[in-house]
Amino acid sequence: MRAIVLGAGVAGLTCAVELAERGVAVEVLERGERLGAGCCSWYAGGMLAPWCERESAEPLVATLGLESLAWWPARFPGTRLRGSLVVAHGRDTGELRQFARRTERYEWLDAGRIAALEPDLAGRFSQALYFPEEGHLDPRAALDALAGRLTALGGTIRFAAGANDCREVTLSAETAGNAVIDCRGLEARDVLHDLRGVKGEMLVVELPDVSLSRPVRVLHPRVPVYIVPRGDGHYMIGATMIESDQPTRITARSLLELLGAAYALHPAFGEAQILEIGTGVRPAFPDNLPRVSRIGGRLYVNGLYRHGFLLAPALARQAAGQVLAAGHCLEVMNADSRQRRLA
C-alpha cells in the first residue's frame, strides 16, 4: 500500500512515520525547501504536558495528549520526562491556586523542594506546582529524528514541492486508489474554511549561567510565559497568542513581555544572548480542538493549535487507522463541536 502525506510539520511527519511503521510506502510533499521552513512546528515549545494544558484546554486535549508521553520516547531518544514546574510571583499566587483547581496529577512544592528540583530557582519562590509525569523535547531535533526514521523505513520527503506538484501527485495517487493525508496546516483553509490562524512569538536565548532541567511556566493574569530548556544552556521562551494569520515579525510589546517574564523568573536572563526571534501561525478550529476529517476521499489532520507535539501522535495513530481500516472516531471526526468536546 502507498500513501501521500502533504506537509512535513509535526502533524505530517507523525502521520508518515505511523503509516511507514505499519508497512505503508509513504511519500511526504513539503512546500518548504528544508525541514521546518515555513511550518509553525519549528517554533513550538515542545512541551508534552497533558495535565498542565488542562488549565485552559478541553479534556480531549489531555486524553489525546497522554499518548505523546509514550510515543515520543520510543522514536526520539532526546525526549525528556522530567516533569514540569509551574510558578507565580508573590502577588499572582491566586493564579497558582486557580491553576491547581483546574488541573490534576501535581504536587505542591515548598521553597525547599523547589530548590531541590531546580537549584538555580532556590529562594525565588515559596510555592510551586510540580507535574512529575510530564515531558519536553526539542521540536527541531524531534522533527529531524522523525524524518530520519521515515527514511530508514523506506519513506521519502520531497521538499520545495509547489502547489502544482502536489496537485499532480495527489491526483495520480487518488486515481491509483492510494491514500492522501493532508496536513498542510493553515494552507488547508482552501478546503477547511473554518480554520483560523493564531500567531505565536518566541525567543531562543543562550544563558550558560542558569541551569533548568524542565519547563517552567510563570503564571501571570495577562502574560503567562514558559521557558523550556533546550540543552547546552539554550532556552526557548514563549509564547504569545494573537488572533492573526500573518506571520509578521515580533512586536516590541511582545518582546518586552517575553523577556520581562524571563528576567522576573531569574535576573540572570538579563545577561542572556538572544539567538533567535521566531514567529509562526498555528492553525486552529473555532473550538481550538484538533480534527481528523474525510472530505472527498482525502483525509485531513489539522487544527492542532498550540498543542502540536502533544497531540500529533494520537492523531497520527487515528489517521493511520483510518487509512488502513476505515472507521469513525467520534472524538476527532465529529464535525459538531459540542459532541467532540463531550466525546
Binding site: 483560523r196 492573526s244 494569520d245 500573518q246 512586536t251
Partner: peptide
C-alpha cells in the same frame, strides 16, 4: 483591538466569528 490584528485584515478569522 490590537493594532496588529486589525492591519491588513490579519485577524479576519476571529473578526468573522
Amino acid at each position: 483591538l490590537r493594532r496588529e490584528s486589525g492591519g491588513e485584515r490579519a485577524g479576519q478569522g476571529f473578526w468573522s466569528i
